[in-house]
Protein backbone atom coordinates (compact mmCIF):
# COMPACT_ATOMS: atom_id res chain seq x y z
CA UNK A 1 0.00 0.00 0.00
CA UNK A 2 2.29 2.70 -1.23
CA UNK A 3 -0.17 5.51 -0.54
CA UNK A 4 -0.91 4.50 3.05
CA UNK A 5 -0.01 7.33 5.41
CA UNK A 6 -0.15 7.30 9.18
CA UNK A 7 -1.98 10.06 11.01
CA UNK A 8 1.30 11.40 12.37
CA UNK A 9 3.13 11.31 9.03
CA UNK A 10 6.43 10.27 10.57
CA UNK A 11 6.49 12.89 13.33
CA UNK A 12 9.36 12.79 15.81
CA UNK A 13 10.21 14.75 18.97
CA UNK A 14 13.13 14.60 21.35
CA UNK A 15 13.36 15.75 24.93
CA UNK A 16 13.30 13.68 28.06
CA UNK A 17 12.54 10.79 25.72
CA UNK A 18 12.60 10.14 22.00
CA UNK A 19 9.09 10.05 20.65
CA UNK A 20 8.39 8.79 17.14
CA UNK A 21 5.49 7.87 14.94
CA UNK A 22 5.76 4.17 14.18
CA UNK A 23 4.33 4.77 10.70
CA UNK A 24 1.68 2.63 9.05
CA UNK A 25 1.27 -0.46 11.21
CA UNK A 26 -0.82 -3.53 10.60
CA UNK A 27 -3.40 -4.31 13.29
CA UNK A 28 -6.05 -6.99 13.54
CA UNK A 29 -8.73 -7.11 16.22
CA UNK A 30 -9.73 -10.58 17.34
CA UNK A 31 -12.80 -11.13 19.47
CA UNK A 32 -13.65 -14.44 21.05
CA UNK A 33 -12.45 -17.03 23.51
CA UNK A 34 -8.72 -16.59 24.01
CA UNK A 35 -8.04 -20.31 23.83
CA UNK A 36 -9.72 -20.44 20.46
CA UNK A 37 -7.95 -17.33 19.25
CA UNK A 38 -4.64 -18.66 20.51
CA UNK A 39 -5.01 -21.80 18.44
CA UNK A 40 -5.57 -19.83 15.25
CA UNK A 41 -2.68 -17.49 16.05
CA UNK A 42 -0.47 -20.44 16.63
CA UNK A 43 -1.34 -22.04 13.33
CA UNK A 44 -1.22 -18.86 11.24
CA UNK A 45 1.54 -16.82 12.86
CA UNK A 46 3.31 -19.14 15.28
CA UNK A 47 2.22 -16.85 18.11
CA UNK A 48 0.12 -17.61 21.15
CA UNK A 49 -2.54 -15.77 23.10
CA UNK A 50 -0.94 -13.67 25.84
CA UNK A 51 -1.68 -13.91 29.52
CA UNK A 52 -3.84 -11.22 31.04
CA UNK A 53 -2.40 -7.72 30.39
CA UNK A 54 0.60 -9.13 28.59
CA UNK A 55 2.03 -9.01 25.10
CA UNK A 56 3.37 -11.99 23.17
CA UNK A 57 6.12 -11.12 20.74
CA UNK A 58 7.42 -13.22 17.88
CA UNK A 59 8.91 -12.84 14.45
CA UNK A 60 5.54 -12.33 12.84
CA UNK A 61 4.52 -9.55 15.19
CA UNK A 62 3.00 -8.95 18.58
CA UNK A 63 -0.25 -10.05 20.17
CA UNK A 64 -1.75 -7.68 22.74
CA UNK A 65 -4.19 -8.67 25.47
CA UNK A 66 -6.97 -6.08 25.22
CA UNK A 67 -9.78 -7.61 27.28
CA UNK A 68 -10.96 -11.04 28.37
CA UNK A 69 -12.40 -11.61 24.89
CA UNK A 70 -10.28 -9.36 22.72
CA UNK A 71 -6.75 -9.49 21.32
CA UNK A 72 -4.96 -7.11 19.02
CA UNK A 73 -2.38 -8.44 16.57
CA UNK A 74 0.29 -5.92 15.60
CA UNK A 75 2.25 -6.76 12.46
CA UNK A 76 3.64 -5.20 9.26
CA UNK A 77 1.02 -3.05 7.55
CA UNK A 78 0.96 -4.86 4.19
CA UNK A 79 0.53 -8.30 5.72
CA UNK A 80 -2.60 -7.51 7.75
CA UNK A 81 -5.30 -8.28 5.14
CA UNK A 82 -3.84 -11.67 4.23
CA UNK A 83 -3.17 -12.65 7.84
CA UNK A 84 -6.70 -11.63 8.76
CA UNK A 85 -8.09 -13.81 5.98
CA UNK A 86 -5.95 -16.72 7.13
CA UNK A 87 -7.06 -16.28 10.74
CA UNK A 88 -10.66 -16.16 9.58
CA UNK A 89 -10.15 -19.42 7.74
CA UNK A 90 -8.40 -21.03 10.69
CA UNK A 91 -11.24 -20.04 13.00
CA UNK A 92 -13.78 -21.57 10.64
CA UNK A 93 -17.28 -21.67 12.09
CA UNK A 94 -16.18 -20.89 15.62
CA UNK A 95 -17.77 -17.90 17.33
CA UNK A 96 -15.03 -15.33 16.76
CA UNK A 97 -14.60 -12.05 14.96
CA UNK A 98 -11.64 -10.89 12.92
CA UNK A 99 -11.37 -7.29 11.78
CA UNK A 100 -8.52 -5.42 10.13
CA UNK A 101 -8.06 -2.19 12.06
CA UNK A 102 -4.63 -1.11 10.79
CA UNK A 103 -5.92 2.36 10.02
CA UNK A 104 -7.97 2.91 13.14
CA UNK A 105 -5.08 3.73 15.43
CA UNK A 106 -1.90 5.72 15.78
CA UNK A 107 1.15 3.85 16.99
CA UNK A 108 4.02 5.67 18.68
CA UNK A 109 7.33 4.52 20.06
CA UNK A 110 8.90 6.09 23.14
CA UNK A 111 12.44 5.37 24.15
CA UNK A 112 14.80 6.53 26.84
CA UNK A 113 15.41 5.97 30.50
CA UNK A 114 12.81 8.58 31.49
CA UNK A 115 9.94 7.09 29.52
CA UNK A 116 8.00 6.09 32.63
CA UNK A 117 8.38 9.58 34.07
CA UNK A 118 6.97 11.13 30.90
CA UNK A 119 4.08 8.66 30.75
CA UNK A 120 3.34 9.26 34.44
CA UNK A 121 2.67 12.92 33.67
CA UNK A 122 -0.34 11.96 31.56
CA UNK A 123 -1.39 8.46 32.63
CA UNK A 124 -2.90 7.56 36.01
CA UNK A 125 -0.82 4.39 36.10
CA UNK A 126 1.70 3.00 38.58
CA UNK A 127 4.70 2.07 36.47
CA UNK A 128 6.77 0.67 39.35
CA UNK A 129 7.34 -2.99 38.69
CA UNK A 130 5.94 -2.66 35.17
CA UNK A 131 7.50 -5.63 33.44
CA UNK A 132 8.82 -6.22 29.96
CA UNK A 133 5.93 -7.48 27.88
CA UNK A 134 3.36 -5.93 30.19
CA UNK A 135 0.53 -3.86 28.72
CA UNK A 136 -1.75 -1.30 30.28
CA UNK A 137 -4.86 0.23 28.80
CA UNK A 138 -5.74 3.52 30.42
CA UNK A 139 -5.88 7.11 29.32
CA UNK A 140 -3.28 9.59 28.15
CA UNK A 141 -4.47 12.99 29.35
CA UNK A 142 -8.07 13.04 28.08
CA UNK A 143 -8.19 10.10 25.66
CA UNK A 144 -7.95 6.32 25.79
CA UNK A 145 -4.59 4.74 25.04
CA UNK A 146 -2.57 1.61 25.74
CA UNK A 147 1.14 1.28 26.41
CA UNK A 148 3.37 -1.75 26.51
CA UNK A 149 7.00 -2.21 27.45
CA UNK A 150 9.07 -3.76 24.69
CA UNK A 151 12.46 -3.55 26.39
CA UNK A 152 13.99 -1.81 29.38
CA UNK A 153 13.74 1.61 27.74
CA UNK A 154 11.52 1.04 24.71
CA UNK A 155 7.79 1.44 24.89
CA UNK A 156 4.97 1.43 22.38
CA UNK A 157 1.74 3.38 22.65
CA UNK A 158 -1.50 3.15 20.70
CA UNK A 159 -4.46 5.48 20.62
CA UNK A 160 -7.23 6.15 18.15
CA UNK A 161 -6.10 7.66 14.89
CA UNK A 162 -8.11 10.88 15.13
CA UNK A 163 -6.42 11.83 18.39
CA UNK A 164 -2.91 10.74 17.41
CA UNK A 165 -1.86 14.34 16.97
CA UNK A 166 -3.26 15.29 20.36
CA UNK A 167 -1.49 12.45 22.14
CA UNK A 168 1.80 13.12 20.36
CA UNK A 169 1.67 16.84 21.23
CA UNK A 170 0.73 16.11 24.82
CA UNK A 171 3.65 13.68 25.23
CA UNK A 172 6.05 16.05 23.50
CA UNK A 173 4.92 18.90 25.73
CA UNK A 174 5.35 17.13 29.06
CA UNK A 175 8.58 15.54 27.83
CA UNK A 176 10.34 18.83 27.18
CA UNK A 177 13.79 19.21 28.75
CA UNK A 178 13.60 20.77 32.19
CA UNK A 179 10.67 18.60 33.22
CA UNK A 180 12.85 15.85 34.69
CA UNK A 181 11.28 14.38 37.81
CA UNK A 182 13.30 11.29 38.71
CA UNK A 183 10.21 9.48 39.93
CA UNK A 184 11.15 6.14 38.39
CA UNK A 185 14.85 5.43 38.87
Amino acid sequence: MSDAVSALKGARASGMVDLADAGPTGMITLRGDHGLLGDSLSSVLGLSAPERRRVVTGEAGEVLWMSPDELLVVLPYDTAPDVAAALETALGDAFATVAVVSDARSVMHLSGAQTRDVLAKLMPVDFAGFELGELRRSRVAQVAAAVWRRSENDWALICFRSVGGYVFEALATVGKPGGEVGLYR
Binding site: R52, R53, R137
Partner: peptide, 11 residues
Protein backbone atom coordinates in the same frame (compact mmCIF):
# COMPACT_ATOMS: atom_id res chain seq x y z
CA UNK B 1 -12.62 -7.88 38.03
CA UNK B 2 -12.28 -8.39 34.27
CA UNK B 3 -8.73 -7.22 33.67
CA UNK B 4 -7.55 -7.16 37.29
CA UNK B 5 -6.40 -3.57 37.18
CA UNK B 6 -6.80 -1.37 40.24
CA UNK B 7 -7.16 2.15 38.96
CA UNK B 8 -8.54 5.54 39.80
CA UNK B 9 -12.12 6.54 39.13
CA UNK B 10 -11.28 8.55 36.01
CA UNK B 11 -10.69 5.30 34.11
Amino acid sequence: PCCGVTAEETE
